[in-house]
Simulated assay, not measured.
Amino acid sequence: MAVPKFAASRSFHAELKRRINTYFEETKTSTTGNANLFVKAVVLTSAFVLLYVHLVFFTAPIWLSLLECVLMGLLGAAIGFNVMHDGAHGSFSKRRWVNQFASFTLNVMGGNSFMWNVKHNLIHHMYTNIEGVDDDIDVQPWMRMSSTQPRHKLHRFQHLYFWFLYGLLYIAWIFFMDYQKYFKGKIGSMPIKKMTNTDQSVFWGFKVLHLFLFLALPIYTVGFVSWLVGFIVFGSVAGFTLSLVFQLAHTVEHAAFPMPDEITGKLEDEWAIHQIKTTANFATNNRVISWLVGGLNFQVEHHLFPTISHVHYPAISKIIKQACTEFGITYNEYPKMRYAVASHVAFLREMGRA
């Protein structure tokens, strides 16, 4: 399909930017990360490395090894939420090289920062929840994530088996999806810009490094069966955690799935209003969840201002809520995470039976 076009009016977005800029000017605060974020990054990455070293080079009881694999999966997802995600958006630090260093944690974990930038920053953040463009809602044929997607018989049960599929995300991502995008030269229907020699070197160099660190070395030290069990546990926990947090932001009952006009290719709303209608927050008053998921429970704020670090989302959310009230725009939010999960399950059930 042709790339959709948003409505020409940008009055709401302009007003939002003015208010947010005023907030940072008055508080004399940088829009990037602060000391708390840097400390959190050190704590998360250090804990991950220590667990990795203990699992690979030391012999521990089976129950402890499995527990450590679960913790590694949670820490891997937390690093993605808190370090990689901000770094990839250029909001982790004022310094470009620090942001790049933070985003490269994804490469070490087996993904690729170039592919992520195209898929997430350029496509998903621009064309959120638009079928045929946003690759995040394309889980076909296994799941139906939009009413405009074809429905198959197995979708009747997707609200029951989605737990299993979400657990496969990380493993499928690092061993299949990145390579598929690389060789096809596009993400979904959107072409990928030509990779430079540096991009190519980073892609293949880190893929080889990941295979050595997470496959070859562990197999050599602990044996194939122990590695396989541990890696599946680690990958499943990481994949499920990553999937659930991102899906709660857009595939819930109150999120919209707009489609452009078939003739003009235009969408009804300006970009900022489109982002609010297609996005939902959850558990924003829960500091533990906010800390662990890197502020991605403030998804509305993130989609409107992706280059602002998540440490500022609680403050700017008040400004955005007020603006939505004044402009008569519905601000989607679930007060508890369990409410968002229930809404996601209900959404999947509806899509499977509609």
Rank of each mutant, 00 (worst) to 15 (best):
M1C: 04
P4K: 00
P4Q: 05
S9G: 10
S9H: 15
A14Y: 03
E15W: 09
R19T: 06
I20W: 08
I20V: 11
E25R: 14
E26P: 04
T27E: 11
G33Q: 06
A35D: 15
T45C: 07
L50H: 11
H54W: 13
H54A: 08
I62V: 09
W63R: 11
S65V: 07
L67Y: 13
V70M: 04
M72T: 12
L74E: 06
F81W: 09
N82I: 11
M84D: 03
G87I: 03
A88Y: 14
A88M: 07
H89M: 01
H89E: 03
S91E: 07
R95M: 08
Q100M: 01
A102W: 11
T105K: 00
N112W: 01
M115V: 05
N117F: 14
V118F: 14
V118G: 05
H120T: 14
I123Q: 05
H125T: 04
Y127D: 15
I130Q: 03
V133L: 05
D135A: 12
D138T: 05
P141G: 02
W142E: 08
T148D: 00
Q149I: 00
P150M: 02
R151S: 01
L154V: 07
H155N: 00
F157S: 02
F164S: 07
I171F: 13
I174Y: 14
F175E: 15
F176Q: 08
F176D: 13
Y179N: 12
Y182H: 10
G185T: 05
I192A: 09
M195H: 10
T198H: 10
F203R: 04
F203S: 00
V208G: 02
L215V: 15
P218K: 10
I219L: 14
V222E: 08
I232W: 12
F234T: 14
S236W: 09
A238V: 06
E262I: 05
G265F: 01
E268V: 08
H274K: 13
I276Q: 01
T278Q: 11
A280Q: 11
N285W: 06
W291N: 08
H303E: 01
T307A: 14
T307Y: 15
P314L: 10
S317G: 04
I320V: 05
K321F: 12
E326R: 13
F327C: 06
N332W: 03
P335R: 03
K336N: 01
R338N: 07
Y339C: 04
A340H: 02
V341I: 11
V341S: 08
A346P: 00
